[in-house]
């Protein structure tokens, strides 16, 4: 094992470690987002409610916005667009999915919270965004969201906005998808 071979093997080991590190960055990023709440990533698994008294002194306005991503003939509406809650209290809000397309399909609502720090204190007990929804043609589905803003929400946060974007779910890789479906348009 000459000096050169020892150096080369050590360098190759570091190389492989860095390549694995690049892929480890993906889960690391998720963990980092959970801890610091950057990017408004919200827990996408059901969480237990924190049982503590309701903080009557503060009222937080929570706004809901729904957006339709391209390619899915569905609509997501929120019945009451804005609620005023006390930190600590659990609140239920009703959303409605309608599939106004002619075929059944799978869709998913992806949540995002602003200000992003608020996502640390937003606990979602039940939410339609946890799993993919299946709707038949013309079907309408009412889905509740039960959430709780924990008491330790920093007091400089007075308004929280929760945005849901509706995306189609299909396992066809992007490359094989026809770029335009308008009849006559070359694909």
């Amino acid at each position: 094992m000459t000096g050169v071979q020892r150096t080369v093997t050590r360098t190759v080991v570091v190389l492989l470690a860095m390549f694995v590190f690049a892929f480890a960055l993906v889960p690391l990023y998720d963990v980092f987002c959970r801890i610091t709440g950057i990017n408004g990533k919200v827990e996408n698994t059901a969480q237990a409610m924190v049982r503590d008294s309701i903080d009557e002194s503060r009222v937080i306005t929570v706004q809901f916005v729904t957006r339709a991503g391209a390619g899915l003939p569905w609509k997501l509406e929120v019945l009451n667009r804005q609620v005023r809650v006390h930190p600590g209290a659990a609140t239920e809000v009703h959303f409605a999915f309608t599939n106004h397309g002619s075929t059944a399909g799978w869709g998913r609502a992806v949540p995002s919270v602003s200000p992003s720090e608020a996502s640390l204190y937003m606990r979602k007990i039940t939410c339609f965004c946890f799993q993919e929804q299946r709707l038949a043609a013309g079907e309408r589905l009412e889905a509740p969201l039960v959430f709780q803003l924990t008491r330790d929400l920093p007091d400089d946060i007075k308004t929280v906005t929760l945005v849901y974007t509706l995306y189609p779910v299909d396992d066809k890789p992007l490359a094989t998808k026809a770029t335009s479906v308008v009849p006559g348009g070359e694909t």
């Binding site: 360098t11 570091v14 190389l15 590190f21 690049a22 960055l25 890789p173």
Partner: peptide, 22 residues
């Protein structure tokens, strides 16, 4: 170079998987 080029290789492989493997 040894520390950083693998990270570039990683990110373009992730792109490749996003484009072709869903």
């Amino acid at each position: 170079l040894i520390a950083v080029m693998p990270v570039l290789a990683g990110v373009i492989t992730m792109m490749l998987m996003d484009i072709n493997f869903g």
